[in-house]
Amino acid sequence: MTARLVLTAAVCALAALTAACDGDRSVRITSTSTSTDGEGKGVLKVVETLQCPQTIGSLTRKGTATDGGRTCTYTGPRGAEVILSLVSLEGRTVPQTLRVFEDRLKVSLPQAVAGLGAGASASATTEVRASSSSGGDQATVRAPGVAVDAQDDKASVRLPGMHIEADGDNASVRIGGFHIDANDSTGSVDIEGSAGGDDVSVQARDNSTEVRAVASGEATRASWILTDNRPSPEGWRLVGYEARGPVGGPLVVATVRSRDGNRGRVFEDVKELVTLNVGE
């Protein structure tokens, strides 16, 4: 296991609790703890019609609201497209409702969908190659709260709140509530975990990354992002949504399609637009 992959995975997971890991394939995750009754964040409003200002940050509204005030369309930098929708659950669960938006958006990044699917299959069939149990480079470190055992490309690291097992190209990292599986030869990283009761998952395969975050509590606070370093035929590099709504709905959902692979200003403005309508 390369030291670079182990350290990068570990540092990125720690950074996910607060800010980010920078780079061409960076993923930023922020998490704010919320209780089941919504304490710590404002109570989300029941919305009947959308508020659609002419401009908000880098976004500019196209035309007027449609569908009886339930849909607004915005444009952003480099031709980014944002559609704000007011969606009733109509007997469906929140995941079922949001899945419809995901499926529509995935059509814009077929190469990312294919890459993540193929990468997941490749990772599942990768064999772990153990190094020789005798000879070779070895290291043992013992200190209060610290245990490190390494031999050739195998390593076991235990620190307070962190556990890393590495074998050849494969690494399994546990940091707090996060579990990271990384494979250097396939270029894949999977992260599952929670912080403050909020659930976060990340899948990365070479050029593609998918991030999903769902806040704790009965109200809906969810975001989903799919990115790819390679532009689609239409030039898209990022799609995603920000969704919020009170228990039982309706949901305010803002979908994004962008030719910029970084979340950047557009997603911040999308969050502000959703907050304006339903609260934080």
Rank of each mutant, 00 (worst) to 15 (best):
A3W: 14
R4K: 14
R4T: 12
L5D: 13
V6H: 14
T8R: 14
A10T: 11
A13Y: 03
A15Y: 07
L17V: 10
L17W: 14
T18I: 07
D22N: 12
G23T: 00
G23M: 00
S26P: 06
S26E: 12
I29E: 12
T30D: 15
S33C: 12
T34M: 03
T34A: 11
T36W: 14
D37E: 04
G40F: 13
K41S: 15
V43F: 15
V43A: 11
V43M: 12
V43N: 13
L44K: 00
L44C: 01
L50G: 08
L50A: 01
C52A: 09
C52W: 06
A65H: 09
T66R: 03
D67N: 07
G68E: 02
C72I: 01
C72S: 01
T73N: 12
T75D: 15
G76L: 01
P77L: 02
P77A: 04
R78D: 15
G79Q: 05
A80P: 00
E81P: 12
E81C: 13
I83Y: 07
L84V: 04
L84H: 00
L86H: 02
V87A: 04
S88P: 09
T93F: 02
Q96K: 06
L98K: 02
E102S: 09
V107I: 08
S108F: 11
Q111R: 04
G117D: 09
G119K: 00
G119A: 02
A120N: 12
S121C: 00
A124W: 06
T126K: 10
E127C: 08
E127H: 12
S131Q: 05
S134W: 14
S134T: 10
G135R: 04
D137T: 09
T140H: 11
V141L: 04
R142T: 13
A143V: 06
A150N: 03
D153T: 12
K154N: 10
S156W: 14
V157R: 00
L159T: 03
P160A: 01
G161S: 01
G161C: 02
H163V: 09
E165Y: 10
V173I: 10
I175M: 04
G176F: 01
G177Y: 11
G177L: 02
F178E: 07
F178C: 00
I180E: 04
I180C: 03
D181L: 07
A182S: 06
S188Y: 06
S188I: 03
V189N: 10
A195S: 09
D199R: 11
D199F: 12
Q203G: 13
A204Q: 12
S208G: 08
S208R: 05
T209G: 05
R212P: 03
V214F: 11
V214P: 09
A215I: 04
A219R: 00
A219M: 03
A222L: 05
S223G: 10
L226Y: 01
T227G: 06
D228Y: 01
N229L: 03
S232D: 02
Y241R: 00
E242A: 15
A243T: 02
P250K: 02
P250C: 01
V252Y: 05
V253N: 11
R257T: 11
S258R: 00
G261K: 13
R263C: 10
R265C: 07
E268I: 08
V274C: 07
L276C: 03
G279P: 08
E280T: 03
